[in-house]
């Protein structure tokens, strides 16, 4: 790498860091604003009926615990100050540090997310290439039909359908949770985890394929219609050689980029899917925190997800720069020889 390239990289990274900081501030403000505006009364939601029979002293202590009395701006500033010091607070519902809750839930979710992300990516690229190769024929129409169908199917509906078919009727998979009920953590095997993650992951994969498949199909069609493929044919390359030498090369790059950029969609889908399968992941925790007015936890979760999504987009950018020679070496001028 030349000095100029290093310079460009530093400027690029600095810009990204500033943007990320701005994004986090925005996300935290919006989340906080939404919670403050929420009609849910934390006392009612969490103490419920019991609150009616409590003494005033108890109620005051509860109000202090849930932070009802303080003005929102002050609460936000307190929260932000703690976060800057590295303290994300304590979850009000779980009564454990937010970081601890999040890391446990995140681990459960990551398992799910990574599997479905990989599966939908690989299958999406494969189906997209297949559809482009058999453009207009049966295989293409089936794949496109599938993609359009799943793109317009709500994730929760598909989740319910799979749950009904595989768990309730066929009894092949458990109905919910990430580990068998009542089992000690030490006894849980990898097979158990897989079995429990299978249906949620399947749901997310099925819905995640369509975007990548359709995108890859377009790119592959462009590639097959390009002059360089025409020339490859003129040089006697077979269809398969063309796909292997030129197709993959030109299709994988946009597909990988799209796949990284679509992390947000999978995370969004996981919130719904985890809820349906009562899979104890980050998505489910987010719903619980939201409806239970667990402000520190909800803030923590939104921050983490924003970071992951941002990281995905960032990775997409970086990868583009690394894989695409036009980006990687683009800064160097063409030398006339």
């Amino acid at each position: 790498m030349t000095l100029a390239a290093v310079n460009r990289l530093i400027i690029y990274a600095a810009k990204k860091a500033v943007r990320m900081a701005a994004l986090l501030v925005m996300v935290s403000l919006i989340t906080f604003g939404l919670i403050s505006a929420s009609p849910i009364d934390p006392l009612q939601a969490n103490a419920g009926q019991a609150a009616g029979s409590m003494s005033q002293e108890q109620l005051d202590r509860l109000a202090e615990y849930w932070g009802v009395d303080e003005p929102p701006v002050k609460r936000y500033i307190n929260w932000a100050g703690d976060v800057l010091k590295g303290d994300m607070g304590t979850s009000l519902l779980y009564r454990r540090p937010v970081t601890e809750v999040i890391s446990q839930k995140l681990f459960n979710s990551l398992f799910l997310l990574v599997i479905s992300w990989l599966v939908s990516g690989v299958l999406g690229v494969f189906l997209g290439i297949l559809a482009a190769l058999y453009r207009g024929r049966l295989a293409d129409r089936l794949i496109r039909g599938y993609a359009l169908l799943t793109a317009s199917t709500p994730a929760f509906w598909l989740a319910l359908l799979l749950l009904l078919v595989f768990s309730v009727w066929l009894k092949l998979f458990p109905i919910g949770l990430s580990v068998p009920i009542g089992m000690e953590a030490a006894q849980v095997t990898a097979a158990d985890r897989l079995r429990h993650a299978f249906l949620p992951a399947l749901t997310l994969s099925i819905t995640g394929i369509s975007g990548t498949a359709l995108h890859t199909r377009e790119k592959m069609i462009d590639c097959l219609e390009s002059d360089y493929v025409l020339f490859a044919r003129a040089r006697g390359e077979s269809r398969w050689e063309i796909v292997r030498r030129h197709g993959l090369r030109n299709v994988l790059l946009p597909a990988i980029t799209l796949q990284f950029a679509s992390i947000s969609e999978i995370i969004g889908g996981s919130v719904v899917v985890e809820q349906v399968f009562s899979y104890p992941g980050l998505g489910q925790a987010a719903v619980t925190a939201g409806t239970g007015s667990d402000v520190p936890l909800l803030m923590g979760i939104t921050m983490i997800t924003a970071l992951v999504v941002f990281g995905g987009n960032f990775a997409a950018d970086i990868l583009y720069g690394i894989i695409d020679p036009r980006m990687r070496r683009g800064g160097e001028a063409v030398e006339e020889q």
Partner: peptide
């Protein structure tokens, strides 16, 4: 084609933009 009859195409668009030119020339 590519064996008994070879084409020299008209422009740079006939080269794969993501493949090094040496490898493209040696393809066969």
């Amino acid at each position: 084609r590519g064996k008994e009859i070879a084409l020299v195409p008209q422009g740079v668009t006939y080269l794969d933009p993501l493949m090094k030119v040496g490898a493209q020339v040696r393809e066969q």
